[in-house]
Design a protein around this nucleic acid. Structure first.
Length: 430
RNA sequence: GGAGAGAUGGCUGAGUGGCCGAAAGCGCCCGCCUGCUAAGUGGGUAUACGGCUUUAAACCGUAUCGAGGGUUCGAAUCCCUCUCUCUCCGCCA
């Protein structure tokens, strides 16, 4: 009686419980698969019963349609059908109840990791997949960005705290321009690579957040406006992926590629005191995001392409980086496979994550009900991918740290010069 | 925020309590016909879930006429709530 999204391939799930179980066991999420299976059985039992009664009711209705309404036979039939009508009603409400319960249980099941994802217990088990540039080659002047004398002038965290709260920086003057230049650089480079630029809403409803997997997994990490039931987006992935929610695309349209610049809002609950200095972790930041909708058979190849594209962005900025293949316990709830790209921040002498390139296989597309017509004309669920391209604050941090000159200026990579309108950021006057 | 109008299949658009999953037209697909094209002509043309089946197809059943709830033996059709769209007014970047 209800239409619910195709959350998982039900049949696959039922018939390959062991695979699903084994896959999920490699991840870090708790979920009760037995409960889901039990609820599914219960659900199907009730559906069958309710539908049988309903079919009987409909058959009787068809007969009654042919009877004279004033006749005794008609009146008898009405009396006879009263009981059945009650049964149908109560079965249907029971069905709705079980389905709601089952759906909630189902939504808590994470995606299964791809076989190529290495086992691992923590971030220490992530595999270094690729490196580029020499971390030791950075400027001898390197300082943590937050220790650069003029940093608090250009990135005013104190006033941001006054205006809003901790973790809401105000970028000023040349730094604001540099942020804008970076965004422009990323957007243009992505557009040149075939990503359609989008400018989406910054707030989303619960259905959208559920489709991409933020709900129910990350409920506490999003800012929420209860009056309207809207969530501030933690990434443009959410509104952009939902662009095609509940749609059936044509096979010829795939792959679809989009990019979007948006501010991102993250409560970062539970990470207090961890990496929070300067720009390392803030509650609002700018990011250009890449999203793709692809044919299921191409998603893993596309992930590699996407990763290479993202690496190209970092290379254009001349920032040493490494790409990690994330291990099973370090990939996210909706992820099948994930690479993180981390740039070297020479002042802090540490790696900063600036992009996460992910393949969600059909996990998000099922929840979002995004399908395409395959060669035979049958609807099939697409695969989605996304990547940051790139997140601004940490890129900024690395540029500041790695390119700091003795006179306090920061030399900018050639690629940014036309977007910034100069080849270096200079200390503020006075 | 106030007043009014509306929401039906890929599209247009009928349908105001009883075989309505839904007329008709358009589009699309398959066939026929036709020097070619156009026209004509016959048929077909949703999705999901459940059942059956080794799988799939076929088949059977159920649901879906913006969403949710109600009335009724029976709802696209009646009632309530909500959402959205359009028009007018107000407010406002």
């Amino acid at each position: 009686m209800h239409r619910w999204p195709l959350m998982l391939d039900l049949k696959f799930f039922r018939e390959n419980q062991d695979l699903v179980r084994a896959g999920i066991a490699r991840k870090k999420f708790d979920c009760d698969i037995d409960a889901v299976i039990e609820l599914d059985e219960q659900r199907r039992r009730i559906i069958r019963e309710a539908e049988e009664k309903r079919a009987a009711q409909k058959a009787a209705n068809a007969e009654m349609a042919k009877l004279d309404k004033g006749s005794g036979a008609f009146q008898n039939k009405v009396a006879e059908m009263r009981g059945l009508a009650q049964e149908v009603k109560s079965l249907q409400s029971k069905q709705a109840e079980v389905e709601t319960e089952w759906e909630a249980a189902f939504m808590s099941i994470p995606n299964v990791p791809d076989p190529s994802v290495p086992d691992g217990q923590s971030e220490d088990d992530n595999v270094t997949f690729h490196t580029w540039g020499d971390p030791q080659s950075v400027s001898g002047e390197a300082l943590p960005h937050y220790d650069i004398s003029w940093f608090s002038h250009y990135v005013d965290l104190e006033r941001g705290t006054k205006i809003t709260g901790a973790g809401f920086p105000v970028f000023r003057g040349q730094m604001a321009r540099l942020v804008r230049g970076l965004l422009e650089f990323f957007l243009e480079r992505n557009a040149a690579a075939g990503f359609e630029e989008m400018h989406p809403p910054l707030m989303v409803n619960a259905a959208s957040a559920t489709a991409t997997g933020q709900l129910p997994d990350k409920e506490g990490q999003m800012y929420f406006a209860p009056e309207d039931g809207f969530y501030l987006i933690p990434t443009a992935e959410v509104p952009v992926t939902n662009f095609y929610r509940d749609e059936i695309l044509e096979a010829g349209q795939l792959p679809l590629r989009a990019c979007a610049y948006t501010p991102c809002f993250r409560r970062e609950a539970g990470s207090y005191g961890k990496d929070v200095r300067g720009l390392n972790r803030v509650h609002q930041f700018d990011k250009v995001e890449l999203v793709e909708w692809v044919h299921p058979e191409e998603s893993m190849i596309e992930l590699e392409r996407l990763r290479e594209h993202v690496q190209g962005l970092v290379e254009a900025l001349k920032l040493p980086y490494r790409t990690l293949l994330m291990c099973s316990r370090d990939i996210g709830f909706p992820h099948a496979k994930q690479y993180d790209v981390e740039v070297w921040a020479g002042g802090q002498q540490r790696w900063l994550e600036v992009s996460s390139c992910s393949c969600f296989t059909d996990f998000q597309a099922r929840r979002a009900n995004i399908r395409f017509r395959d060669e035979s004309g049958k609807p099939r669920v697409v695969h989605t991918l996304n990547a940051s391209g790139l997140a601004i604050p940490r890129v900024l941090a690395a540029i500041l740290e790695n390119n700091l000159q003795a006179d306090g200026s920061v030399l900018l990579p050639d690629a940014l010069v036309p977007h910034f309108g100069g080849d270096r950021l200079t200390p503020p006057r006075s």
